[in-house]
Simulated assay, not measured.
Amino acid sequence: MIPIRSDVRVWLAVGRTDIRRGMNGLALQVQEALGRDPHAGDLYVFRGAKGDLIKILWHDGLGMSLYAKRLEKGRFLWPSPADGVVGISASQLAYMLDYAS
């Protein structure tokens, strides 16, 4: 499990992301598409087209980390692309990682 502080901001990149992207490609997407700084300490969560894989990009102050979780059954629930960038709490992220549908 990612050691998430309760005061950290978590942003869902709504819509579909090319999940083949690595750390640098996702950091560039955070800068260009979301208009945010990937080195600011926030967590950025991306979901693939099938909905069974998410990647989380996080800079902890020392370096960039990329976490991935693939579900064997079910999909991660995700907001509509019309919702724009969606912020959730650290506890909501923990729930999402533990109890995907």
Rank of each mutant, 00 (worst) to 15 (best):
L62H: 15
V14H: 11
G61E: 04
R21M: 12
R9E: 09
P81G: 03
V85H: 00
W78Y: 11
D42C: 10
L97R: 03
R20M: 10
S6K: 11
R21K: 14
G48E: 02
R16Q: 12
G51N: 07
L66D: 01
L62E: 07
K69R: 14
G48H: 01
P79H: 05
D83Q: 11
I2V: 15
R5M: 06
D60C: 04
R47W: 00
V10K: 01
Y95I: 05
A100T: 13
I56F: 13
A13K: 09
S65M: 12
K73S: 15
A13L: 01
V86P: 07
A49N: 12
V30S: 08
A40E: 15
V10I: 15
E32I: 02
Y99P: 05
S80I: 04
Y95V: 06
M1G: 14
G74C: 05
E32Y: 09
I19D: 05
D18L: 04
G41N: 02
W11V: 02
L77N: 13
P3A: 02
A100D: 04
F46I: 11
V30A: 10
K50C: 01
D18E: 08
L97K: 03
L71G: 02
V85P: 06
H39P: 06
F46T: 10
A68V: 10
V10S: 04
S101D: 15
L28T: 15
Y67D: 06
A27S: 15
R70W: 00
L66K: 07
G87Q: 15
V8S: 12
Q31P: 03
Q29L: 15
Y67I: 03
R36E: 10
I54H: 05
Y95T: 13
T17H: 05
D18A: 10
A68W: 08
I2M: 13
E32V: 00
V30K: 10
L12A: 02
W58Q: 07
G87R: 15
A94V: 14
G61H: 10
R36Q: 14
L71S: 01
N24T: 06
R16I: 14
P38L: 13
L43A: 08
L28E: 12
A49L: 10
K55W: 00
G22P: 02
A13H: 04
L97H: 06
K69D: 05
K50Q: 13
F76N: 06
P3D: 09
R70Y: 00
S91C: 06
F76H: 01
F76R: 07
